[in-house]
């Protein structure tokens, strides 16, 4: 990109890459949880529901701190990941993806639940009488019909991931080329004397990205609705 400086385009590319990883990581789990919370009645459901929504109400710094405790090099999960797979999350873009995934997870689940609630269970019954077992029904009826919610959830989560600041900086710090995404670069620019212009440019990039995302999601939603025959 010609009109962006190398550092700016790096931050942009990093943001997109982190957001994409974050969505890829949370999508399957979010679908599963949306389904569990909407369709199943089990002990601890309310607790699980509250737990999923926690990142919405906790300060992002707290989430980042908890991630540090769990996924840091000495944390129970972090040390195991390192020993078993040689994977390090702290100070890496994968770590940034994890932090944004946790933060945007409730938004994703929420969008999917709303969509799943509108899926007519009668259609699943119909599929049942036509010989479709549980997994088959989910894959051929439920999943395609909740596609608008999955798309909406993914796009919302992607946008939120582009802008996540607190949890990211707390968990993986602010390392140029590795974890310095757009908002972190913007913050850095603001902290640098004479960085006003750079900050304004980064803010503009974020603005274009956000608007583009919204328009794209609207276009997608319309196509899917037509596909589903609404």
């Amino acid at each position: 990109m010609i009109w962006l400086s190398p550092a700016e385009s790096e931050a942009l590319r990093l943001s997109l890459s982190v957001a994409a990883r974050s969505v890829a990581l949370s999508l399957p789990l979010a679908i599963l949880l949306a389904w569990l919370l909407t369709r199943r009645r089990f002990v601890g459901r309310t607790l699980l529901d509250a737990f999923v929504h926690l990142p919405l109400v906790l300060p992002p710094v707290v989430v980042g701190y908890l991630l540090l405790l769990l996924f840091g090099t000495r944390g129970p999960i972090g040390s195991w990941l390192e020993r078993a797979f040689g994977v390090q999350l702290i100070f890496t873009r994968n770590g940034a993806a994890l932090a944004t995934a946790v933060m945007s997870f409730p938004l994703m689940v929420r969008a999917m639940r709303i969509s799943l609630e509108t899926v007519d269970r009668g259609l699943e019954d119909a599929a049942r009488t036509l010989g479709a077992g549980a997994v088959d029904r989910f894959a051929t009826i439920t999943l395609p019909l909740m596609l608008p919610g999955i798309l909406a959830g993914a796009i919302t989560a992607f946008s939120a991931a582009l802008g996540e600041f607190g949890a990211v900086i707390t968990f993986v710090s602010n390392i140029p080329g590795e974890t310095r995404t757009l908002p972190l670069a913007l913050y850095t620019a603001l902290q640098t004397p004479g960085g006003d212009i750079a900050a304004a440019r980064l803010a503009f990039v974020s603005f274009v990205l956000g608007l583009g995302g919204l328009l794209l999601s609207e276009w997608f939603a319309r196509r899917v609705r037509r596909l589903l025959g609404h």
């Binding site: 009668g122 019954d125 119909a126 049942r128 010989g131 479709a132 051929t140 589903l228 025959g229």
Partner: peptide, 30 residues
């Protein structure tokens, strides 16, 4: 025996066709 293994066809009052499939795909589903 669960419905999917009963081999009993069911025609509902509200048809319940799958909206994301064509007529042909609906017919072939069963």
């Amino acid at each position: 025996v669960p419905p999917e293994r009963r081999r009993i066809g069911y025609v509902f009052q509200d048809a319940r066709l799958f909206p994301h499939m064509s007529v042909a795909a609906n017919l072939k589903y069963g």
